Amino acid sequence: TTYKLIANGKTLKGETTTEAVDAETAERVFKEYAKKNGVDGEWTYDDATKTFTVTE
């Protein structure tokens, strides 16, 4: 399944996707990606669109 991340960070803005077996796995991947890019904010997830959003 393809999951999408929308990053609304102070230093990183944009979108990326990952293939994962479930939302929990995708969330781990995206949180690691955000951490590597210095983004720390509020996370939301929309199951209907398989989209995570992080906003600083």
Results as ranks from 00 to 15, higher is better:
Gly41Val: 02
Arg28Thr: 08
Ala34Asn: 02
Gly41Phe: 03
Glu24Gln: 13
Asn37Thr: 05
Lys50Trp: 04
Ala23Leu: 10
Glu24Ser: 11
Trp43Pro: 00
Lys35His: 10
Thr1Ser: 11
Thr44Tyr: 09
Gly14Phe: 15
Lys10Met: 11
Tyr33Gln: 03
Leu12Tyr: 15
Glu56Lys: 05
Thr1Ile: 13
Phe30Ser: 00
Glu42Val: 15
Ala48Asp: 11
Glu42Phe: 14
Asn37Gly: 05
Thr18Leu: 14
Thr51Val: 06
Thr11Pro: 05
Tyr45Cys: 00
Phe30Lys: 00
Thr55Phe: 08
Thr1His: 14
Arg28Asp: 04
Glu32Ile: 07
Gly9Val: 12
Phe30Thr: 00
Lys31Ile: 06
Thr16Asp: 04
Thr53Trp: 11
Val39His: 05
Val39Met: 12
Tyr33Phe: 12
Glu56Asp: 09
Gly41Thr: 02
Val29Pro: 00
Glu56Cys: 07
Asp40Thr: 14
Glu42Pro: 04
Ala20Phe: 05
Thr49Ile: 06
Glu24Lys: 13
Leu5Thr: 01
Arg28Phe: 08
Ala20Glu: 04
Arg28His: 08
Lys4Ile: 13
Tyr45Ser: 00
Glu56Asn: 06
Leu12Glu: 05
Gly14Asn: 08
Thr51Lys: 03
Lys31Gln: 08
Glu42Trp: 11
Lys13Tyr: 12
Thr18Phe: 12
Val21Trp: 13
Ile6His: 05
Ala26Val: 02
Ile6Trp: 05
Glu56Leu: 08
Thr44Val: 09
Gly14Cys: 15
Trp43Thr: 01
Phe52Gln: 00
Thr44Met: 09
Glu42Cys: 12
Lys4Ala: 04
Gly9Cys: 15
Glu27Thr: 04
Thr51Gln: 04
Lys36Cys: 11
Lys50Met: 06
Thr25Ile: 07
Asp46Gln: 04
Thr18Arg: 05
Thr53Asp: 02
Lys36Trp: 07
Thr16Trp: 15
Ala48Ser: 12
Val54Ala: 02
Phe30Arg: 00
Glu56Thr: 07
Asp46Ser: 06
Tyr3Val: 02
Phe52Thr: 01
Thr25His: 13
Thr55Tyr: 09
Asp47Met: 08
Glu27Trp: 14
Val54His: 02
Thr51Ile: 06
Thr2Ile: 14
Asp46Leu: 03
Asp47Glu: 14
Asp47Val: 09
Gly41Leu: 03
Gly9Ser: 13
Ala34Phe: 05
Lys31Arg: 15
Glu32His: 07
Ala23Val: 13
Arg28Pro: 01
Asp46Cys: 09
Lys35Glu: 09
Phe52Asn: 00
Thr51Leu: 03
Lys36Met: 12
Thr2Val: 14
Glu15Val: 15
Arg28Ser: 08
Leu5Ser: 01
Thr1Ala: 12
Gly14Trp: 15
Ala7Thr: 15
Asp22Asn: 13
Asp47Ser: 11
Ala7Tyr: 15
Thr16Phe: 15
Lys35Leu: 12
Thr1Tyr: 14
Trp43Asp: 00
Ala48Trp: 07
Val29Asp: 05
Lys10Ser: 12
Lys4Phe: 14
Ala34Thr: 06
Thr25Ser: 13
Glu27Asp: 04
Phe30Ala: 00
Lys31Trp: 05
Ala23Trp: 15
Tyr45Phe: 07
Ala34Val: 10
Lys50Ile: 01
Glu15His: 10
Thr51Trp: 01
Thr18Ile: 15
Tyr3Trp: 05
Trp43Val: 02
Gly38His: 08
Glu24Asp: 10
Lys4Glu: 03
Lys31His: 08
Glu24Phe: 10
Phe30Trp: 02
Glu32Asn: 08
Glu15Pro: 06
Asp46Tyr: 04
Val21Asn: 11
Asp40Ser: 13
Ala7Phe: 15
Lys31Ser: 04
Lys13Phe: 11
Ala23Met: 13
Thr1Gly: 09
Thr1Pro: 09
Asp46Asn: 10
Thr18Trp: 08
Thr49Leu: 08
Thr55Leu: 07
Asp40Ile: 14
Gly9His: 08
Glu19Asp: 09
Thr11Gly: 11
Glu24Arg: 11
Glu56Val: 09
Asp47Lys: 09
Ala26Cys: 01
Glu32Gln: 09
Thr49Ala: 06
Thr25Tyr: 07
Tyr33Leu: 09
Lys4Asn: 05
Glu27Cys: 14
Trp43Ser: 00
Thr2Ala: 05
Asp47Gln: 09
Val29Cys: 09
Leu12Lys: 07
Gly14Ala: 13
Gly38Glu: 06
Trp43Cys: 00
Lys36Thr: 09
Asn37His: 15
Asp22Ala: 03
Glu27Phe: 15
Thr51Met: 04
Gly14His: 14
Thr55Glu: 07
Thr2Gln: 10
Lys35Ser: 10
Ala34Leu: 10
Thr16Ile: 15
Thr49Trp: 03
Ala20Gly: 03
Lys35Asn: 09
Glu24Trp: 10
Ala48Gln: 11
Ala48Thr: 12
Leu12His: 14
Gly14Ile: 15
Lys35Pro: 01
Thr18Cys: 15
Glu27Asn: 05
